[in-house]
Simulated scan of single mutants.
Amino acid sequence: MSATEFYLLREELTKWVGSLNDSSLLNLLNSIKLSRGTATGDWWDYLNDKERKNITLGLKDLEEGNTLTSNEFWKALESHE
């Protein structure tokens, strides 16, 4: 990624984050920020109960084979349009 592309992407993401109203998504982004900064501990410690539950359910789905490939996902999405 060139320096110009980097700055344009950063500007685009900054605008996007500034427009968010979804507290779950903002909490997730904050968890990512904390995990990359000087925070100590595991990123899991910064998740709320709902986020932990969603991750646990996702892992359960993975273990049980309740997953789709990327191609399957996009085909299913196209059929609903």
Score class of each variant (00 low, 15 high):
55 I>Y: 15
44 W>Q: 08
75 K>G: 02
4 T>R: 14
3 A>E: 15
70 S>M: 10
67 T>H: 01
33 K>P: 01
59 L>P: 00
16 W>C: 04
69 T>F: 04
26 L>Q: 15
11 E>P: 09
64 E>K: 10
5 E>G: 06
18 G>P: 15
78 E>R: 15
77 L>P: 00
33 K>Y: 03
69 T>L: 02
19 S>P: 05
78 E>T: 15
49 D>I: 07
51 E>Y: 05
74 W>M: 09
41 G>C: 08
6 F>T: 08
15 K>D: 14
31 S>H: 07
10 R>T: 08
76 A>E: 07
48 N>H: 11
70 S>C: 12
58 G>Y: 08
26 L>H: 11
61 D>Y: 12
17 V>K: 14
80 H>F: 07
72 E>I: 07
46 Y>Q: 00
68 L>E: 15
79 S>V: 02
29 L>A: 04
21 N>I: 02
24 S>R: 14
50 K>M: 06
78 E>S: 12
6 F>G: 02
77 L>K: 02
2 S>V: 06
70 S>I: 13
80 H>A: 05
29 L>S: 06
8 L>S: 08
45 D>I: 10
5 E>D: 11
2 S>N: 14
13 L>Q: 12
28 L>D: 12
3 A>K: 12
75 K>S: 12
67 T>R: 04
9 L>P: 03
31 S>L: 09
73 F>D: 00
54 N>A: 06
51 E>V: 08
81 E>W: 13
22 D>C: 04
62 L>T: 03
20 L>D: 12
